[in-house]
Nucleic acid binder design. Structure first.
Lengths: 151, 151
DNA sequence: CAAAACTATTTCGTATGCGTAATATTAATG
DNA sequence: CATTAATATTACGCATACGAAATAGTTTTG
């Protein structure tokens, strides 16, 4: 019986080296760290993403928010329900098209734009500790290339 | 009022450039693609990960599986329930320590070791299309560095 | 103008993912 | 040896995440 040479880790698809597993785990670890930072505000990492979109475009339609974040409608309904319950956003019917619901920031939601970013910076800096500026640029470019490959 | 120079995308924490968001989205897109490949077998990407561990170490304890995959116990209970229901694994009490449940492959679970990898390779190749071998090695190294930073 | 097609959002069921608590079991301690 | 501490696993509640279906509303078509 012919023994196969072991596959190098960069090429492997198996736990714990497969890119799929490592991407999932990285995403999970980022979520865990960010969750710790956001807990004092009663927020989740997904809330941070939604707030990002609203700080930039208050009154965005639900469907446009879904496109922006590349998430399906059913996921958004639940998240927006909870953000509304927490007093961060309010939903309002579009004036011209009653199919459309627009998502508006409340004062509480708007006020978070100043205090949340330092926490997110902290997690980002932990992730990229030891990476040079050139490496960060290269990594960012490769992230975009992989995203384009899967889109 | 002093305008801030726009932050380069590689440095941004905001949607859609923040590393946290891009990692989450990459992981989700990988999951979606892999889910499509595994659907014909009635499997999910998490099943693939568990099967990986069992193909390598049949009879692994639940807690060791959790360590291997870096997942909490409660998550594993649900996944193993469903894999057991699908006839892929069976649980058995450890002979020496009744706290421990060992997870064993069934014939059906074992048989998947040959037919699943080509599908996973396909997703990996789509992800890394256009990346040279040197780039893949570098990316793999950086993935490990980021994982180490967050662990 | 009515019917058909499409869009927006929600609901529902299923699958993770996590923190906390409960239960059973084993190991350590005095 | 009895008590305490730790470990293993599950249950529970809450938070995503997705596909399919339902409902309401708008646009397109003939």
């Amino acid at each position: 019986m012919t023994l196969s040479a072991p596959i190098p880790t960069w090429q492997s698809i198996r736990v714990p080296h497969g890119m799929g597993y490592r991407l999932k785990l990285l995403s999970q670890l980022m979520t865990r760290h960010l969750q710790e930072e956001l807990d004092p505000y009663g927020l989740t990492p997904f809330h941070w993403l939604v707030l990002n979109c609203l700080w930039e475009q208050d009154g965005i339609a639900t469907s446009a928010l879904g496109e922006r974040l590349r998430q399906v409608g059913g996921t958004l309904t639940g998240v927006l329900d909870r953000m509304e319950e927490r007093g961060l956003v309010r939903r309002e019917r579009d004036t011209h098209d009653r199919r459309i619901w627009r998502i508006w920031l409340t004062d509480a939601g708007r006020a978070l734009e100043d205090c949340l970013p330092p926490h997110v910076h902290q997690v980002r800096e932990k992730l990229l500790q030891g990476f040079s500026e050139a490496e960060q640029k290269q990594l960012s470019d490769w992230m975009d290339r992989m995203l384009a490959n899967l889109s």
